[in-house]
Design a protein around this nucleic acid. Sequence first.
DNA 1: CGCCAGGCCGTGT
DNA 2: ACACGGCATGGC
Length: 235
Amino acid sequence: MTVANKLAPAKRLRRMHDQLGAAYGPQYWWPAKTPFEVILGAYLTQNTAWKAVERSLANLRAAGALSLEGLRKLPVEELQRLIQPSGFFTRKASALKAFVAMLDEEFGGSLDALAAAPTASLRKRLLDLPGVGPETADAILLYALGHAVPVADEYLRRIAERHKLLDPSDGRIRYDALADLTRRAFAADPPASHAPLFNEFHALTVAVGKAHCGRAPRCEGCPLVLDLHHVRNAR
DNA sequence: CGCCAGGCCGTGT
DNA sequence: ACACGGCATGGC
């Protein structure tokens, strides 16, 4: 597999970004008011509909626990009850407590101090936390801490699969392959624009994903329809 | 009613 | 290295 062969899918993905932007417009992501709310949402939305996450966030807001201080003094049992609507609540409650404990013990309870750490080591530290995998870590890095990292998700995986953006012969479609593909898609853009592009791209991925990229694809009216011949050829 | 959602983790091969 | 089941709720 030559480098030239791997370039085309990245360019196609870059064009898909423009198509999605034209169709959906600016997304203004992440849907949250503070970095800490982003982090809460990133945990809560794991394999969970955002609608359910909103109910949990509303519960937390009513309990005054949308802030770091608020969550810190909340007993884990109470936290479980408040986030119950978004599912997996025992895991997510203890995972959120572990995040706060890490922040307090290693960064003086400061998100700014956390954000100041180098991207690579910070990502590793996040991945070491319970309940934090690559997508959650990258969502926190990009949307809460302002680091220029791509975020891959199940929708992007399906897009890559259905549009044949990744060659099965050079590896299965796993998270890092999707992230690398996204990085290559925007590699020719000015470095300073990478963070906002990654931001917008993932938001657009979710927008199109919710509408068209379910387990059963609903390609009718999909903005990526211009690329659909790749899918048709494959079927 | 059954399927599914903006994953992650432990276990078994 | 991968596959697979468990985790849990609520919307549609």
